[in-house]
Amino acid sequence: MASRTAQQLLWGGRAYLILSWMWIRVSMSYRTSFVVLTLGQFFITGLDFVAIVIMFASVDALGGFSLAEIGFLYGGSGLCLGLADLTLGNIERLGNRIRMGTFDAMMVRPVPLYAQACADEFSLRRIGRITQALFVLAWSITALDLDWSVARVLMVPYLVLCGTLIFLAIFTLGAAFQFWTTDGSEAANAFTYGGNTVTQYPLTIYPTEAIKALTFIVPVAFVNWYPSLFILGRPDPLGLPAAMQFAAPVAALVLGLLAALAWRSGVRRYRSTGS
């Protein structure tokens, strides 16, 4: 039984790569269009940061954080969202597929549905957002006057990995929700892109109740805020134990389990209502 599940997982992963690779090849056959769209993504998401820079024409700190520090938060959050978006961004089209009846076509193929839904029209151009976030992150690291200890350096990939997992789970939850209301895909944006926007800024600008909600209810604070407190050497405004700064995997695990549960019951619902 256990080995069968493992085999399925492995096959799901392989099928995901096969499907994604096909979409990459297709996008490469329209090279000009691919380059334009990727650059477009780069600049579109870049304007987000330009907006923050413009705000800093009127102020020299937001919530007690400098532009370089906010750049670090922004870059971290953007990188995690970008990686998650690249991996399974088109899963949000699920409602559309259900409405059009094309989800049934996925159900008659010998590949786990989740792998198919994630790889659906895999868009490599999303590396535009990732590159942009990396630029801002790299700039902030050079602009920050920090003593880069080994722990701090290691914390950066740790942040990116956990943050990406958290966003992957949120994307999945948003998609699973569409098994119930196929028109509701926009509500998922509030959590994915909303989660990204909220964590672009230091959480100190929000009331403490909001920070608690972002920690314990929609735990996007673990994407970059708590790890960044450690890296930037900042005190926790809630005064929570220092362990919180390393607790991102817990949040990722809890959200991941919830997402798996939601996805499974969504599929079960679909298979008993056909809609």
């Binding site: 297709v26 094309t102 049934d104 008659v108 590949v111």
Partner: peptide, 28 residues
């Protein structure tokens, strides 16, 4: 089993037939 839905295709809309078939080969 094989399934053909008359009104909606189970092929990939943007892929050439050849690529669709190749993809199916690998999936199946």
């Amino acid at each position: 089993i094989g399934v053909v839905f008359g009104q909606r295709t189970t092929l990939w809309w943007d892929l050439p037939l050849r690529d669709s078939f190749e993809l199916l080969r690998r999936i199946y």
